[in-house]
């Protein structure tokens, strides 16, 4: 869609390639209706992993320093904020290309349950953040035993 070659493209038309291209574009357009990842409404994009005990939220934050990441949990609301700092350029140094976004970011999520706030753990490794949020004890699913009536 973006990097269609200006020349050469029309010289060697491969119908299969055309179809693949169209398919790719359709997939992009209908992304929000499919089961694939949704488009993130803000930075950073997050993934949420869940089980009965709690959730793990992951986010890709390449180049962010641990001390610039701020995580807070209030009730069932998780706020992830921080800042991505650019490389400091000296006088006379100049950018040829800038694609990496910089600056402050904040995202707030509502979790489907309350969280044991003092047991929240976060780990930042290789530019990927993992936040583990255990479910509050009182809100864990309980197994109900069914008694027979006689």
């Amino acid at each position: 869609m973006y990097r269609r070659r200006p020349f050469g493209y029309y010289h060697s038309i491969n119908p299969w390639r055309e179809i693949e291209q169209i398919q790719r574009e359709m997939n992009r357009m209908f992304r929000h209706m499919s089961t694939g990842p949704r488009v993130a409404p803000g930075y950073p994009a997050i993934n949420v992993w869940a089980n009965d005990e709690g959730v793990v939220v992951t986010a890709e934050l390449p180049g962010v320093k641990t001390e610039d990441i701020d995580i807070s949990v209030v009730g069932n609301t998780l706020t992830l904020s921080g800042e991505r700092r650019p490389d400091e350029l000296k006088d006379g140094e100049k950018y040829h290309r800038r694609e990496r976004r910089q600056g402050k970011f904040t995202r707030t999520f509502e979790l489907p349950f309350g969280v044991e706030a003092d047991k929240v753990e976060a780990m930042f490794e290789r530019g990927v953040l993992h936040i583990s949020l255990p479910r509050a004890e009182a809100e864990k699913p309980r197994k109900i035993a069914v008694k027979s009536a006689n």
């Binding site: 990842p37 949704r38 993130a40 993934n47 949420v48 992993w49 959730v55």
Partner: peptide, 11 residues
């Protein structure tokens, strides 16, 4: 993450 399943994905 071990024993977890993906519930929501943006990337």
């Amino acid at each position: 993450p071990e024993n977890y399943s993906l519930a929501y994905a943006e990337y």
